[in-house]
Design a protein around this nucleic acid. Structure first.
Length: 242
DNA sequence: GCGACAG
DNA sequence: ATCTTGTCGC
C-alpha cells in the first residue's frame, strides 16, 4: 500500500527559514551512543524519486534483516515536492514523504540508512541527522559523492578508508566498499559512532558499492513513482490521485 | 563577483 | 535527481 502525505503547514518556504530550522534542531543530535551492533536486528534503507513536472515525490522504506540482508518489510508514500533542491537543504525536499513511508512500516526500522549525509554538512545537520532527530532512530548517511569535502583516496582493498574532511575537521569517512572502486562517503546521523556507521556500511555491501538498503529503497521508490505517474493515466488525474 | 555544490 | 544506447563483465 502506498500512503499519501501533505506538506506540513509549518514547513519552511525560504532558504533562510530552512537554515534556521537546521540551526535550531542540530543541538538535539545524540553522539554519545555506540549504536546497534552490525549484523543484528533490522536495518532500513530510505530513498526518494521525483517527477518535477507533475510535482510528485515517491519515497520508499525497505527493512532488511541485518544478518541475512533479506527483505523483511517495505512501504512507500507519495507527496508533493516540499522544497526546491538546494545544496545543504536536501532534507527539506525529502523528509515529509520519507517520514510517511517509515510510519507505514509494519515493524520497527532499527538503524536507518540514508542516501546522503549526516554530520558531513555545512552546518553539521544533513538529511540523516535531521531524520534521526525527528524520529529518534539511529541513522547514518551513505553518499555517492564527496560534496564540498576533501579526502585522500583510500587504499585499494575493500574496507580501506580515509577521513572526509571539512578543512581539518573529520566530518565523515571515504570508505572503500569494493576493491579498487570509488569509495562511498559515510557520516554519522544520530545515535551512532562513525566507526559503527562504517562497520554497518561494510556489512551492507557484500557485493556492490552501495549498501543493499539503498539499492532496495532506490528500486522501490522508482517503481512507486512509475506506478503513480509514468504508468498510465494523464497528467491531471495522476496529480489528482495524490 | 564567480564557481562548486548530498539528491 | 533526471534525460538516455549500447556495451563490457561478473
Amino acid at each position: 500500500m502506498t500512503t499519501t502525505v501533505p506538506v506540513p503547514d509549518d514547513w519552511p518556504v525560504t532558504e533562510e527559514q530552512a537554515r534556521a530550522v537546521q540551526d535550531a534542531l542540530r543541538a538535539r543530535v545524540v553522539l554519545d551512543e555506540a549504536g546497534p551492533p552490525p549484523g543484528t536486528g533490522h536495518v532500513t534503507g530510505v530513498d526518494v524519486a521525483y517527477d518535477d513536472e507533475r510535482d510528485v515525490v515517491a519515497a520508499a522504506a525497505v527493512v532488511l534483516d541485518a544478518a541475512s540482508l533479506d527483505v523483511v518489510a517495505e512501504a512507500t508514500a507519495l507527496g508533493r515536492i516540499s522544497f526546491p533542491y538546494v545544496p545543504g537543504l536536501l532534507a527539506f525536499r525529502e523528509i515529509p514523504t520519507v517520514l510517511a513511508a517509515l510510519d507505514a512500516l509494519p515493524c520497527p526500522p532499527g538503524l536507518v540508512v540514508c542516501d546522503g549525509y549526516g554530520l558531513a554538512h555545512p552546518r553539521r545537520f544533513g538529511l540523516a541527522a535531521h531524520l534521526g532527530v525527528l524520529t529518534g532512530l539511529p541513522t547514518i548517511g551513505v553518499a555517492k559523492n564527496p560534496f564540498t569535502f576533501t579526502y585522500a583516496d583510500p587504499d585499494t582493498p575493500r574496507g580501506s578508508s580515509a577521513p572526509l574532511l571539512d578543512g581539518t575537521e573529520e566530518v565523515g569517512r571515504a570508505l572503500r566498499t569494493r576493491d579498487g572502486v570509488k569509495p562511498v562517503f559515510v557520516s554519522v546521523g544520530h545515535r551512532i559512532t562513525l566507526d559503527g556507521a562504517c562497520a554497518h556500511t561494510l556489512s551492507l555491501t557484500p557485493s556492490h558499492r552501495l549498501p543493499e538498503t539503498t539499492r532496495r529503497a532506490d528500486a522501490l521508490c522508482r517503481r512507486a513513482l512509475r506506478e503513480a505517474t509514468g504508468g498510465g493515466g494523464d497528467l491531471s488525474t495522476a496529480s489528482e490521485a495524490i
